[in-house]
């Protein structure tokens, strides 16, 4: 990471720091960088910035860097960091908040992060259409979008032989209610953007 003028970063991104604190409901300023979150994080080995560094980036207002990081997407939401934090910072909530912010701000994603976000989209699209997750539709759509047409085809076959795949979605009677949830959330979030 190149040298950063922290005074300028703090001044310019004060709103960002406040926003993350407020939206996640977490006292991010409390973190004293003990690194316990990173020590217990099962995914830290695959992250570009380890969990305690992600939190530090929030404290310092390094908005763009943290929102572009792979780490916030690789977080598996296991909450080990949260349950062990001696300063009572729920880091899993902070990660959640950063992912949401990255999406709303239209941050371009790369590598692992892009695939994870794509998977989330494919998952939620089937929920939006049917009210429930439609596993086969989600997988086919994900393969199409990531251009790996035969990815997990062997899994699919093995699942089929064990009656673990349904070809048709299980649609909710009131699936329009669920679609409305998606629409209204979008509406509210666009208003507050």
């Amino acid at each position: 990471m190149p040298a950063i003028n922290l005074t300028a970063s703090l001044n310019d991104n004060f709103d960002f720091i406040m926003h993350v604190s407020k939206e996640s409901g977490q006292p991010v300023e409390q973190c004293y960088q003990c690194g316990k979150c990173t020590a217990g994080c099962p995914i830290a080995f695959a992250m570009d910035f380890s969990p305690h560094r992600v939190l530090r980036m929030v404290q310092l207002g390094l908005k763009e860097r943290v929102l572009q990081s792979q780490a916030i997407w690789l977080c598996a939401c296991c909450s080990t960091c949260t349950s062990r934090c001696p300063r009572n910072v729920d880091l899993a909530q902070v990660m959640d908040c950063l992912r949401g912010l990255a999406r709303r701000e239209g941050i371009p994603l790369e590598d692992r992060a892009r695939d994870i976000a794509m998977f989330y989209d494919c998952f939620l699209n089937t929920v939006k259409d049917n009210g429930k997750l439609y596993e086969l539709g989600m997988m086919l759509n994900y393969n199409l979008k990531t251009r790996q047409f035969f990815k997990n085809a062997d899994t699919g076959l093995a699942m089929f032989t064990r009656s673990k795949i349904k070809f048709l979605p299980a649609k909710n009677k009131n699936h329009r209610d669920v679609r409305q949830i998606f629409q209204r959330v979008k509406e509210l979030e666009e208003k507050t953007k």
Binding site: E23, C97, R99, G100, V127, K132
Partner: peptide, 13 residues
């Protein structure tokens, strides 16, 4: 309906 699971809260609280 679906609880939203990880994709739900990861996309929007």
């Amino acid at each position: 309906n679906c609880c939203g699971s990880t994709p739900g809260h990861s996309t929007s609280h």
